Amino acid sequence: MNLRQLRYFCEIVEAGSAVAAASRLHVAPTALSMQLGQLEEELGGELFDRSRRPMDLTALGRYFHPRAKALLADAAHLQQEASSVAAGRSGVLAIGYTRSTIFSILPNAIQAFRSSHPNVKVELMSLLSEHQHAELQTGRIQVGVSRYVGPVPSIDELEFKRLLDDPFVVALPATNPLARRKLLHPADLSQTGLITYPKDPQSRFAEHTIALLREAGGQSPVAHEASDIHTALGMVASHLGFCLVGRSVEFGSRRDLAFVPMSRLADKAAVFAVTKTGEQSKVALDFVETLVATTARAARVPKRTAR
């Protein structure tokens, strides 16, 4: 049994005869009759009472007709949905992201993407950069938005597209006297505790930022280890210390914090869009293009001055 047989059968019912159905379908009556006969053979019974003129449905035909119409409607709907997915107009896009990118990079991209792809369902999953690799390889997410300090891992199955270099700034309570400075030196914070993040055995981000600060001549002790950047910034707002964050974090961040550049920091974070090598999903590829465009536009916006 195939969709052509179902369509021919339903057309005969709607047209009232095989001859009228063949005319509507632009096929030879013999071809239509052959397909109907094959269908009846597969079903094990006749669908029409051929002894009557015009032909009438048998009990099997009356049972089969509404179900055949439903199957044809489902098939047409499936074809439309599949074509929409293939064209990138609909589907599901799963994105893994580091929490620091939720401040500005990701919201801008998602807003722009949803305006051009309103029928695509976007799923967001908060994942450390190191945890995104496995989820990309298994297909659980299609795009990762990752942040790295130092060497970027080389993984054969993954492609890394650089979005921006994100210089580090110092996050301080807005009421701290140092928050009024235009530039800080490592020695300025020697008596202030450093808050590191994330507290995860697979992440070397905290280790890299500590080394970066030490190389610049900073002697600040580690006061707290936060589970993630949001917790770290909450600790800063509570006057428990300071932390280093990418400059992009400043946008959309808390108003009780100030972000001040620090001299002599020899490295900066880099943010990447990560996909599987040879990714075929048009939805995923369209989102990466949107991410590149919105990040580039945001980078051209003048940075807010420290409070």
Rank of each mutant, 00 (worst) to 15 (best):
E159V: 01
N108M: 12
V85L: 07
F9H: 05
A86V: 01
L172C: 04
A237Y: 01
I102G: 08
S116Y: 10
Y148F: 15
I210F: 10
S248P: 00
E123L: 15
K182H: 12
E159H: 14
G144C: 09
M34Q: 14
I110F: 10
P201M: 13
N176E: 08
G37F: 05
A171H: 07
K268Y: 14
I229N: 15
I195Y: 03
V92F: 10
A31W: 13
C10P: 02
F272W: 13
D56T: 15
S190M: 10
S227L: 05
C243W: 04
S253E: 05
E135H: 15
A223P: 00
A82C: 10
L127F: 09
L43Q: 11
F259M: 07
L128P: 00
F113M: 05
D49Y: 07
G150N: 07
A70D: 11
A174I: 13
E123M: 15
S248C: 05
P107C: 02
D165M: 02
S23L: 05
G91F: 00
S51W: 15
L25G: 08
L265T: 10
G252R: 14
D188N: 03
Q38T: 03
S238G: 07
L25A: 12
Q38C: 02
A109H: 04
I110D: 00
H133A: 14
L128V: 02
S238A: 15
S238W: 12
R62L: 03
K282F: 04
F242E: 02
R24L: 08
A296R: 15
S248D: 11
A187P: 00
V222C: 02
L32H: 12
D49Q: 11
T231P: 03
K303L: 07
E40G: 02
Q219P: 00
A226G: 01
H26Q: 15
F242V: 06
G246Y: 11
F287T: 07
L57K: 14
V152L: 12
S154L: 03
I141W: 10
S104P: 00
Y148K: 09
S100A: 13
R62W: 09
S253W: 13
L265Y: 10
G241Y: 04
R4Y: 09
P302I: 06
M34C: 05
K69E: 09
I102H: 07
K282P: 11
A171Y: 06
T101K: 10
